[in-house]
Design a protein around this nucleic acid. Structure first.
Length: 443
DNA sequence: TCTGGGGTCCTAGGACCC
DNA sequence: TCTGGGGTCCTAGGACCC
């Protein structure tokens, strides 16, 4: 917590819907819902007119259609337009300070102290008013709500207090007076699950939260989360405004209009997702070592499978190959509702820089582990493995062999998930591994 | 026609290494 | 032969945010 109200938080009001109403005068004053318009779509943003009928973000579009009157506009979204408008606003923020931290397309923190401003209450209030005016003018009428306070958490809470088109400056010293009457849900990091857990012990407001001991809080919600909430309830927040945060992962996912079962179709969807992820990685000049597959099944049960490789990837074909392998270990019976592909463990260097010159010889390993006899045969299986590279995955009937690491290989015989085979980790000099002929090599 | 898509951070257990 | 602890990496899942 700073001595002066030098952190500003801006939140654009019903942003996607506001851009639509700006660009289409016929929509002004009418309920507008932006989001997925298909059978499985959800609401991204509802205009304030639509909120009056109960439409909300994250609600299924089907439900929003039931709630809103005839004449409501349901729009699929024009992200290029939102992006352009967002850039105009972020540009205005960067005129205030070099330290601007975007949180999303429609939200950002600004460190006013780094901008060399007069930080008196009156000056900061005037600055915020002026900013709001300039945003509305530069965007053609999109409004934003602003909070200014001595910390990030209070600035963000401030911008929520007076929406839309609001302005709240929390005077230094008044932080706890503002905080304590609010519901715990106002605090960043308290969602439905944590709120419910707190409600069970009659903790409803941030003031109630303030009365809990650190031990009680951490035993309720975990170490890191509990310690964080303990501090936030005391307005004890010294998190700095950080510009230029590096992305930690890149992913793409798709919910299908109807659940998929056809293996060829699933494989094609994986390819398409890998292309989206890989091209974004390549455009940003990054690559990553861990590939994650996300599968949502017909019954909405969701699981992830990941594999970390010895080297970073950015090529769609290679990303897809890993993802296809991961998918093979997942039970798809009953249908797949959603597939997702992600890459994490990002590093700024594209793949191949360090090891491109060397073309290692494959080592053939004979694995004498007997797999599930009814699903895989015959043992022993032969696996080709490049030392220092990812291990390669030879398909073994209905099972799979894979692994990772610089000097070892993990061999996993995996049938249906309901009956996984044994798992062994074998060192390169393991006596159980004898030289053998490399298998057909397709990688 | 219930429940998107893009992220971040944390936890917990197991393997592995010293 | 038994018994450790600490740290890191990996995997899977979950809460949360916009």
């Amino acid at each position: 917590m700073r001595r002066e109200p030098s952190i500003l938080h801006l939140d654009l009001d019903a942003f996607f819907a506001a851009v639509e109403q700006r660009d289409k005068p016929s929509l002004r004053g009418r309920p507008v819902v932006v989001g997925g318009t298909g059978g499985r779509g959800v609401v991204a943003t509802a205009s304030y007119e639509a909120r009056a009928f109960g439409a909300r973000s994250a609600m299924s579009t089907a439900e929003a259609r039931r709630l809103c009157p005839p004449g409501t506009a349901f729009l699929g979204g024009r992200f290029a337009a939102y992006r352009r408008t967002s850039e105009v606003v972020m540009g205005l923020l960067r005129e205030l300070s070099p330290l601007v931290e975007p949180l999303s397309i429609d939200e950002a923190y600004v460190d006013l102290a780094a901008g060399g401003h007069d930080l008196s209450l009156a000056a900061v209030t005037a600055l915020a008013r002026d900013l709001k005016d300039r945003i509305a003018e530069a965007t053609g009428g999109v409004t934003g709500s602003v909070g200014v306070a001595t910390s990030k958490s209070l600035a963000k809470i401030g911008s929520e207090l007076d929406k839309p088109d609001g302005l709240t400056v929390v005077p230094p010293g008044a932080e706890l007076d503002v905080l304590h009457p609010l519901p715990v849900r106002s605090l960043g990091g308290i969602g439905p699950v944590t709120a419910e857990r707190l409600a069970q012990i009659s903790v409803k407001t941030i003031g109630d939260l303030h009365r809990l001991s650190l031990v009680d809080l951490t035993s309720l919600v975990g170490q890191a989360h509990g310690a964080g909430l303990y501090r936030l309830a005391r307005a004890d927040d010294d998190r700095p405004v950080v510009a230029d945060r590096e992305a930690k992962s890149v992913s793409a996912e798709e919910t299908f209009a109807r659940d998929l079962t056809d293996p060829a179709r699933l494989a094609a969807e994986i390819e398409a997702l890998a292309v989206r992820v890989g091209s974004r990685l390549q455009r940003s000049g990054t690559s990553g070592r861990t590939v994650t597959l996300k599968v949502r099944r017909f019954d909405y049960s969701t699981l992830t499978r990941s594999q970390t490789l010895a080297h970073a990837l950015d090529e769609p074909r290679q990303i897809a190959e890993v993802a296809q392998r991961l998918l093979a270990g997942v039970d798809r019976s009953g249908g797949v509702r959603l597939l997702g592909v992600g890459v994490s463990g990002l590093s700024p260097y594209a793949q191949g820089d360090l090891f491109a010159e060397r073309d290692p010889e494959p080592v053939a390993l004979v694995v004498d582990e007997a797999p599930e006899p009814e699903t895989v045969e015959p043992p022993p299986a032969v696996v080709a493995w490049y030392p220092g590279q990812d291990v390669v995955h030879a398909e073994l009937g209905a099972g799979w062999v894979w692994g990772s690491g610089l000097n070892r290989v993990t061999v996993r015989f995996e049938g249906p998930r309901t009956a996984p085979g044994p798992v062994r980790t074998l060192a390169a000099d393991d006596p159980d591994l004898a030289p053998g002929d490399p298998p057909d090599w397709t990688g």
